[in-house]
Design a protein around this nucleic acid. Structure first.
Lengths: 339, 339
DNA sequence: CTGAAAGCGCTTACAG
DNA sequence: CTGAAAGCGCTTACAG
């Protein structure tokens, strides 16, 4: 299928390629009659300008790349998908191009981030799920290009962080438990090095301190955001601290693991132990009588990030960080303290 | 940030751009010394060839577009995400480019499919979730470009369909119920017009006929693949046909709805009614004691489709259709018939 | 309102 | 082994 070019349109319409270009790009200095004829011919021929040639000619579309650390086979948490969809739609709304980039480690070695950006002609970036040990982590944060970060709490030139207010959200979660009468509240946290882990701990601590309670370091364990790990370690936590009646988990996945572990100990949720999660992943509604959790919306976060990235590309002033909405969703995994 | 071009590299390395181009593209007719120097300079400058210029110059990367009917905000079923990831990785493995295209209806009107392909310089297509009423539906099926179809059962030039064997899989699901002793088995199907609905019905019917049972048209209802609809309509089904003790659903989502409806009637799953789904979506494990279902793997399907599309672009011979693996997963929603 | 010509950054015969 | 030059399909001053 030979590609139809601007020349074909010009010839068939009996004008120069210059005029075709201007007509198709909507410039005003073309007579209506000529424009109409050109449009007609273009439609007949199913003509669409070659995007590469356009770019080289100086009309490059602004394009935003979404860089994710690794595309898994499935997206249990809906985090990756929601963000992809959110950024995609932000691009559509802004009339810019969207490119999905997964940074498998092998390729990070062969081509550095700046080269990647140049190769793909990127104007702006949205980054999510980068880990501190990703080769691209530092490079992205240098801010060569405008970059919106999802859940990566770094500030700097050309950088804007989008996330929920993890501290306040976690505080609310724990205050919910306090309001139910719980006095001994444990926490199952994610990896110690992750920014969000620190923030969510901070909210947990703040809620307890505000309630004039003491912080017991034994009450906090780190389960790496993994279901299986939480499942095992919650047993240790409860065995060592039998006075605990409620657990705040830094992710739903860990909360699900925790519930399994709790039930394996012969305890019931929420009668014996109340559990709160974080994220509101799709399965949260279905676990037992439903998981009480902090809901955040990956689509909204991706969409915000996409729009912010675009604004940064357009040289608009944007804040260093923006807060995405969250919400405590009460379901069946929490209940009042039994006297 | 001024882009560094091949000229910059040539100047700094003291050679012509011709030589730079050949060195970087790995041609053999460049002396090792020269090549080494050029590579060195290129790295220093973080040079990466402009992909647009390359394409125009004749080295266009082959690129495969994944066209989905609509990118939802979340992907409860993991179908969209799994396919995206699968196609993406197929492209990475084949060293070709990946483009995600969501065909929001508004844009389908303004730009036809062929124009879209030309604009994006697509060489091959993977299509999923197109509905018969999508403007692009017919256009994609014309086979202008090599096209791998996921769950769209059409044959033709430049077309290859990838899906599980819906008939056999559905038959197995129903045979599982028969083996448990059930004699009166209903079916909750998707939209009547969908190809997969027809195929899954066909498997259901085949299993019953093989077992010398009669097909009762009253036993089959159409719930449009929607959880809420199934939830309501299953009640009618069971009220009108109280002898039914098992239901085969053409999707997990409808199965989940059905279970809710059944429980709202005061019946229990599986003691009173056994339920089988189709898909094995992430929540299937968590619904009640787990949903018995036919597992299919969106990642594998996407990956197969991506590879097939690439092969078609490379003019390799491919079959008209390929079958993706499936598997009956037995969980707690099915049990033996109570006498 | 329209067209001839230069230029975007590459690749690739072609000549040496 | 290396380079000057043409060409890919567009856009955009510039001239008329």
């Amino acid at each position: 299928m030979k590609r139809t070019s601007i020349k074909d349109v010009a010839t068939k319409a009996g004008v120069s390629i210059t005029t075709v270009s201007r007509a198709l790009n909507g410039y005003s200095d073309v007579s209506e009659a000529t424009r109409a004829r050109i449009m007609e011919v273009a439609r007949e021929l199913n003509y669409a300008p070659d995007v590469n040639a356009r770019a080289l000619g100086g009309m490059s579309e602004t394009t935003i790349g979404l860089i994710v650390s690794d595309l898994q086979h499935s997206d249990y948490s809906n985090m990756a998908f929601g963000v992809i969809s959110g950024v995609y739609h932000a691009c559509v709304e802004n009339g810019c191009e969207f490119i999905l980039l997964a940074t498998d480690v092998a390729r990070q070695g062969k081509q550095n981030f700046l080269q990647l950006c140049r190769k793909k002609n990127l104007d702006g970036i949205v980054a999510m799920g980068l880990r501190t040990d990703d080769v691209y982590y530092k490079e992205v944060l240098k801010g060569y290009l405008p970059c919106a970060l999802i859940d990566i709490n770094k500030m700097g030139k050309n950088l804007c962080n989008i996330s929920v207010d993890n501290i306040r959200a976690s505080k609310e979660a724990v205050q919910h438990l306090l309001a139910l009468g719980h006095k001994h509240i444990g926490m199952i946290n994610g990896e110690k090095v992750a920014d969000v882990s620190k923030e969510r701990y901070s909210g947990y601590a703040s809620a307890l301190l505000d309630a004039d309670m003491v912080l017991n370091p034994d009450y906090v364990i780190y389960s790496d955001f993994k279901e299986e790990v939480a499942r095992e370690e919650v047993k240790e936590l409860l065995k060592n601290n039998p006075e605990i009646t409620a657990v705040f988990c830094a992710s739903d996945l860990m909360a699900i693991g925790a519930i399994q572990g709790i039930e394996e100990m012969g305890l019931r949720v929420p009668e014996d132990i109340s559990v709160v999660g974080f994220d509101d992943i799709p399965v949260a509604r279905y676990v037992g009588n439903g998981l009480t959790t902090i809901k955040q919306d990956p689509y909204i976060m991706g969409n915000m990030a996409g729009k912010i990235a675009y604004q940064m590309v357009m040289k608009e002033k944007v804040p260093f960080q923006m807060q995405a909405p969250y919400e405590l969703v009460e379901r069946g995994s929490t209940g009042p303290l039994k006297k």
